[in-house]
Simulated assay, not measured.
Amino acid sequence: MNEKRERILRIRDLSISFKTESGHVNAIRGVNMDLYKGETLAIVGESGSGKSVTTKAIMGILANNGTIESGSIEYTWYDEFTGEKHTEDIVKMSEKMKQKEIRGRKIAMVFQDPMTSLNPTMTIGKQIMEPMIYHYHKSKEEAYKEAVELLNLVGITDAEKRMKNYPHQLSGGMRQRVVIAIALSCDPYILICDEPTTALDVTIQAKILELIQDIQKKKNLSVIYITHDLGVVAKVADFVNVMYAGKIVEVGSVNEIFYDPRHPYTWGLLSAMPDLDTDDTELYTIPGTPPNLTVEVKGDAFAPRNQYALNIDLRLDPPMFYLGGTHRCASWLCHEKAPKVEMPEQLKKRILKMKKEAEESGN
């Protein structure tokens, strides 16, 4: 981790709503988030918690029925010629500017399913070359040479031959490598990975994660991972943002979140991780369902599912409580006057086991 951390992305009070047949969905409700140069931030939470919507807003690719109601997404970069520092609010940028300056060029995204990202009618080579020609006006010869280098970088053998292949001629793992090559083709500063290994089998998953980490080190990239897989988070993240019902409910370093979680929702997520050594016959699941965001949420959105909920949770939304270091948590249980509530005993045992394993492996 960098000694002098340089913030590259700053999101403040971001609120996003969608018009649907069921009504107005308040999908993102006042999100604050920071990403620093060279670091990896993981955003975790159940499906529908707002992880992907947040990152699509960063890319400027919200669906047509989505509206940014308030907030800012400030992106900082240095001019490649003058070295001058610039900070710009992506929310205020025109569609044309987002297309020209942000998407693919400064911020790139690797999606969950490579087949939805690749054009089945175009060769792999053409798809990698296209962003370089569009953004940097490179000649076809130059773009071709760099595309071959990128295919080698992402671990595709016989790169020249693969340039002529179509997506259906490659395996799932190779297609995802191609998607990563396309994402890297314009040397972005930020790489957003939206569940990048979900569609792949376990052995390929590990290789893709290692590949992204290797490239991150080589290029000093800042990476945002969107995932519900806490096993992936433990492997790749420096910092973690836990999301629930369109809000960030806990923030901290990977050690703070895994070894000292404070929000009952984070307790639930960690308890639901599969574990071969557990005595339980059934996998833990968080009771209840996420709230309906077409209705205004009163108090803490997690309260109806929270066995530790206090009276105040039903009336007031908790603020972020500072817990030391980089650790913050939006739960009334963190208030100095709140009753002392311990995490579940089974989770305590699991955390002790994770700590022991980490110490033994030297992490």
Score class of each variant (00 low, 15 high):
7 R>D: 09
8 I>R: 00
9 L>V: 15
9 L>G: 13
11 I>L: 03
12 R>W: 05
12 R>M: 10
13 D>R: 03
15 S>D: 11
17 S>C: 02
29 R>S: 13
31 V>P: 08
32 N>A: 13
36 Y>L: 09
36 Y>E: 10
45 G>I: 10
46 E>T: 03
48 G>L: 01
50 G>Y: 06
50 G>A: 07
51 K>S: 05
51 K>C: 06
57 A>S: 15
62 L>G: 03
65 N>I: 08
71 G>D: 04
72 S>L: 00
74 E>S: 05
74 E>D: 13
76 T>I: 04
78 Y>N: 11
80 E>A: 11
82 T>I: 01
85 K>Q: 14
88 E>T: 14
88 E>R: 05
92 K>T: 14
102 I>L: 13
104 G>S: 03
105 R>F: 12
107 I>Q: 05
109 M>E: 00
116 T>R: 01
117 S>D: 00
117 S>C: 07
119 N>T: 01
123 T>K: 15
124 I>M: 04
129 M>P: 13
131 P>T: 06
135 H>V: 14
136 Y>Q: 13
137 H>T: 09
142 E>F: 03
143 A>W: 11
145 K>D: 12
149 E>F: 06
153 L>A: 08
153 L>K: 02
153 L>W: 00
154 V>Q: 00
156 I>F: 01
158 D>E: 13
161 K>Y: 14
164 K>H: 14
164 K>V: 04
165 N>F: 12
166 Y>H: 13
167 P>C: 11
170 L>M: 15
170 L>Q: 12
174 M>L: 15
176 Q>D: 08
176 Q>M: 04
178 V>I: 09
178 V>D: 07
180 I>D: 07
180 I>H: 05
184 L>H: 02
185 S>P: 02
188 P>S: 02
191 L>G: 02
195 E>L: 05
196 P>S: 08
197 T>V: 15
204 I>E: 04
205 Q>D: 07
208 I>R: 08
210 E>C: 10
213 Q>I: 01
213 Q>Y: 00
213 Q>K: 15
213 Q>G: 08
219 K>V: 07
221 L>V: 08
224 I>N: 05
225 Y>N: 01
233 V>H: 05
234 A>L: 01
235 K>V: 00
235 K>D: 03
236 V>E: 02
238 D>E: 05
238 D>G: 06
239 F>W: 05
240 V>K: 02
241 N>G: 15
243 M>N: 01
244 Y>L: 00
249 V>M: 06
250 E>M: 01
258 F>Y: 14
259 Y>K: 10
262 R>S: 10
262 R>T: 08
263 H>Y: 11
277 D>S: 12
280 D>M: 10
283 L>E: 05
287 P>T: 10
290 P>D: 04
290 P>L: 03
291 P>E: 01
292 N>V: 13
294 T>A: 11
294 T>C: 10
296 E>A: 10
304 P>S: 10
305 R>C: 07
306 N>T: 04
307 Q>I: 08
311 N>W: 08
313 D>A: 14
316 L>S: 06
317 D>C: 14
318 P>H: 03
320 M>V: 12
322 Y>E: 11
323 L>A: 01
324 G>Y: 00
325 G>Y: 02
326 T>Y: 11
327 H>F: 06
328 R>L: 04
331 S>G: 02
331 S>Q: 03
332 W>C: 02
337 K>A: 11
338 A>S: 08
338 A>H: 01
341 V>K: 12
344 P>N: 08
353 K>Y: 12
354 M>Y: 13
359 E>P: 00
361 S>V: 11
362 G>V: 09
362 G>N: 10
362 G>T: 12
362 G>S: 10
